[in-house]
Each structure stands twice: as structure tokens, then as C-alpha cells.
Design a protein around this nucleic acid. Structure first.
Ligand code: MN
Ligand code: MN
Ligand code: ZN
Ligand code: ZN
Lengths: 148, 148
DNA sequence: TCAGTAAATTAGATAAAGTCTATTTTGTTG
DNA sequence: CAACAAAATAGACTTTATCTAATTTACTGA
């Protein structure tokens, strides 16, 4: 049993492989960020991720957070969701799906792709190719709404 | 023909009525902003509207631009479109429709509602009411795409 | 082991969109 | 014209995100 692997769970290794699989060198910071995001399907802002990383042992700078999130998104490990005018959400659920966005709470919720069926599609503008379709159901918490 | 209306076109009056119809006092600045937006269906940023207003006779401050756009949106005269992470688009087309968003050029284009048919709708989360559905087709100008 | 190198991280400056506050301007009404 | 309310304004401020120049880390090959 000398030079054998330890039997303890090594999630870091797993994530390391996941990152290498898409050509990303798994640094300490990147692994931390990935661990947070990939723990479960969720929607986090850069700020939340920064806070989360720095609440654990290792810290990462704001610049690294943004660099890493951009890199992960370009490599398809996460998805950027633009629904809130003030900040981007990073979505660790990369399967095709849609969103409820609660305008009152700012909460973002997943909708399974098969819950929404789009039958008729428009033809694309000349010389463009489709990158993706975003469907957002904007909802309000139903208490008597004001206007003005 | 003494106290009769002049025969010249008076678009200001028209816009004045449109504003009053939704309970907005038509001030000089608001009318200017409305004239620019309502000239045709289009997607403009606050910055573009500010520049446009100030290139004409009357000027308006940044604060007034934002106040007015917010007011118009709340009263349903225009629609806010959230697709670009860095700025909001104000859409003078308030009929139900969807959008192409060209990620390369930042250009936003309308899609008639009847070009896209959504057959299956998800049930809303408990105690929320639907405010609207946004469907965005993200496209790229088709030249060999880079990654990294 | 260690020098050499490239990749990654970092602090902090900077940029841009949008909001807020205190003040002034404008318009209305008696 | 006086009194008042609504609207506009300058500029300070906040927040998200990017950029830059310097430092740190990690890998490679002798
Ligand atoms: Mn904003
Ligand atoms: Mn942004
Ligand atoms: Zn999602
Ligand atoms: Zn539109």
C-alpha cells in the first residue's frame, strides 16, 4: 500500500480532470471557484462567488474571479445569464433550459427545456448563426402591485 | 379662420396627448425624448437618447433622461430590454415581439410575435404572476469564430 | 536541484451605467 | 404677483466590470 492513492474522497481531482478536459490548467483558485459552482445547479453573481471563495481557506482576487468566470463560460463549463440590469448571473446548469426571473426578489429559477416548447422558429438574419435561445418568464410576487 | 388651429403639422400636440393619456405631464424634455423614441420602432440606450436630445435645440440632463425613461417604461409607453450586460435598451415597439441579439455587433432586431410560437408553457411558481415573456435569439455574425 | 520561462494571480487604478441628493427652475393657481 | 408643487438639474456617489503593471506560481529541461 506504499505509493497507492489514498482512499479518501478527492473531489479536487475530479474537478481537476473536468478542467483539464476542456484545456484549463487547474490552479488553486480555479478549482475553488469550480467547487463552489459545480456543487449543484445554481445561479451566482461574481460578487457572491468572490465572497464564497474568500470565506474558505484560499482567497482569490476580484480580477481572478472575473478572469476565471469568463474562461469557464467560453469553455462551456458555465453559462452567463443576462436578466438583471445590474449584474450577470453565472449558471452552473449547462443543460438546455429556461428561466423564471422574479422581478421583486431578483431570484432566478430553472425551467426544464421540455416544459417550454417552441414550435415555430424565425429564419435568422442573413450571414448569422444561432448561438442560443434565451427564454425568460418575468414574474412578480403576487401582492397588490403599485404603479407610478 | 381667426382662432382656428394652424394647418401646419403639430406632432408635439400629438405626443402631448399621448403622454397625458397615460397621466404624464408633457414637459419640454419629456416631449423631446418621446419624439425621438416614437419616431419609429427602435432600440436605444439612455446614452444615445441623451446625445440625440442634446444635439437638438433643447437639452436635458442625464438625470432627466433616466427619470423619463423609467416613467415611460412604468406607464407602458416603452419597454426595457435586458440583453446586453452593460446597458439597458429602451424599445419604442411595445407590441408583443421578440428579439435577435447579435453578440458581435451588439445590434438588436425585432421578431414578430407570430414568427415564434410557444406551445407548451410551464406553470408559474406559487404566488407569482406573469409579467411578460422575453425570447432572445443570440446570434453571431458568421465568420470563422475564435475561442480561448 | 535549479535556472529560465510562460502562465496565472494580484492590487489598485480606471471606466461606464445608473442612482441619489440638494438646489434651482418652471408652471400653475388664487 | 405670491405661494406652491412638480420637474429639471449638476454633480457626487455607487456598483459592476475591465485593465495594467508588477509579482507569484508552476512547469520544463539541463
Ligand atoms: Mn444598470
Ligand atoms: Mn456589466
Ligand atoms: Zn439556470
Ligand atoms: Zn424590439
Amino acid at each position: 500500500m506504499q505509493s497507492q492513492k489514498k482512499s479518501a474522497i478527492q473531489p479536487e481531482r475530479d474537478i481537476g480532470k473536468q478542467l483539464r478536459a476542456v484545456g484549463i490548467t487547474p490552479t488553486q483558485q480555479r478549482v475553488q471557484i469550480a467547487e463552489i459552482l459545480f456543487a449543484r445547479p445554481q445561479h451566482l453573481s461574481a460578487d457572491q462567488i468572490l465572497a464564497s471563495v474568500n470565506s474558505l481557506g484560499t482567497t482569490a482576487s476580484k480580477a481572478t474571479i472575473y478572469n476565471t468566470l469568463g474562461l469557464f463560460a467560453r469553455r462551456g463549463l458555465i453559462r452567463e445569464v443576462i436578466v438583471d440590469p445590474v449584474k450577470v448571473f453565472y449558471d452552473s446548469n449547462t443543460s438546455t433550459h429556461h428561466h423564471f426571473f422574479n422581478l421583486d426578489s431578483g431570484e432566478l429559477t430553472d425551467i426544464d427545456a421540455d416544459k417550454v416548447v417552441v414550435t415555430n422558429l424565425p429564419e435568422l438574419p442573413g450571414d448569422t448563426q444561432l448561438e442560443g435561445i434565451d427564454i425568460i418568464f418575468r414574474v412578480r410576487s403576487s401582492h397588490p402591485h403599485e404603479e407610478n
